[in-house]
């Protein structure tokens, strides 16, 4: 029967129903369902989808740990050669589910995984390092093309063939550098690149130097004496006792804490949740992480307009880019509502 495959899809593609059925718990059925039919057609007799797992998107995202555990068990029973999830196109929760399941399967079961989604699907950024992720269109209109690429890659993975470059296979780059042999020796490639550069032609560098996403600097505040300032910190400052149980690393949440009526941080009213550095100094005096004492004095003396009554805190250490993006977006919304003018962000 060739390569054995298990396929994961959501309640919609599983024919269970739409948003109203999004809380559908994981179920394993034998054989193919929905897009699996297209995959099976593409495989011909080279591979067989032995079973399909269907799970509601809300169910998965609201019960990630439980759902992942159950799904892993279902896959383990099948002992497939390759696991496929999706494609999820632009469906956010579906994309996250596909990514999360792929990550779990590849890490705990050590089975090669393929999924597919639109590049702006939040699941893409979160999990493209953990799975071969075919880049799809943003809607199911691109299903045929997506299935063809997913199937081709799955066959290669299942038969242990070498996987080509992201451009060649259509998956999103995972950021891993791998050696290849070129047609020409390096010196010739360099001279050819030089000629292209001299002619003003487009060149493709073999090693893209790291570049970083930039945001244009915001306009400065005109006069801090009139401005409302807010404090945000990734150094994990929290009220004594860490009421929200912010994790010491890989934080999954941020805290919002009132400093109304507090003029100075002391061992009695503040500490750090950060696990990445020696906490003694911050626990002795949290002003060493967020300068509440100084800003309160400045507020009184009129050196700043006012200080926002809340500070926002998370732990930068090990926190995923995506989580911190998410936190920042929520914090920004809050700041906007509170008419804050500028932000002091401290990090340790």
């Amino acid at each position: 029967m060739g390569i054995k495959i298990v396929h994961y899809i959501n309640q919609f593609y599983g024919g269970i129903g739409g948003e109203d059925k999004a809380d559908y718990a994981p179920e394993k059925i034998s054989g193919v369902k929905g897009p699996g039919m297209g995959l099976q057609a593409a495989f011909g007799d080279k591979a067989t989808i032995s079973s399909t797992i269907i799970c509601g998107d809300s169910y998965f995202n609201e019960n990630i740990d439980v759902a992942t555990g159950v799904i892993l068990e279902m896959i383990k029973e099948e002992n497939p050669d390759v696991f496929i999830a999706g494609p999820a196109f632009n469906a956010g929760r579906y994309g996250v589910a596909c990514g999360a399941v792929c990550k779990a399967v590849s890490e705990s079961l050590n089975i090669p995984v393929v999924t597919g989604m639109y590049i702006e699907n939040p699941g893409a950024d979160m999990y493209k390092k953990n799975a071969y992720m075919i880049e799809t269109t943003n809607s199911a209109a691109g299903m045929k093309d997506a299935l063809a690429k997913v199937a081709a890659l799955a066959l290669k993975l299942g038969s242990g063939e070498a996987i080509g470059t992201p451009e060649l296979e259509g998956y999103m780059a995972r950021g891993v550098r791998r050696n290849i042999f070129c047609e020409d020796r390096g010196a010739k490639r360099a001279v050819d690149m030089l000629v292209q550069k001299l002619k003003g032609e487009k060149i493709t560098t073999e090693y893209p130097m790291p570049t970083f996403d930039r945001v244009d600097p915001a306009e400065p505040v005109k006069d801090v004496r009139k401005a409302k300032i807010a404090i945000v910190s990734s150094g994990g400052p929290v009220p004594k006792g860490n009421p929200d149980h912010i994790e010491s690393s890989s934080a999954s949440k941020f805290g919002k804490y009132s400093i109304a009526g507090i003029d100075d941080l002391t061992p009695e009213n503040g500490e750090t949740a950060h696990g990445g550095y020696d906490p003694v100094y911050a626990n002795q005096d949290l002003d060493r992480v967020i300068p509440v004492d100084i800003l309160k004095e400045m507020e009184k003396s009129g050196e700043i307009g006012s200080l926002h009554d809340f500070y926002y805190s998370t732990v930068g250490n090990g926190t995923s880019v995506n989580n911190s993006k998410k936190f920042a977006a929520e914090i920004a919304k809050d700041l906007l509502a509170a008419n804050v003018d500028a932000v002091i962000l401290t990090s340790t």
Binding site: A173, R174, V176, I180, G186, A187, Y207
Partner: peptide, 13 residues
């Protein structure tokens, strides 16, 4: 070789 004596290279996967 960093003077390009060989054919080896690397790509982002």
């Amino acid at each position: 070789s960093e003077v390009g004596y060989g054919k080896l290279s690397a790509r982002t996967y």
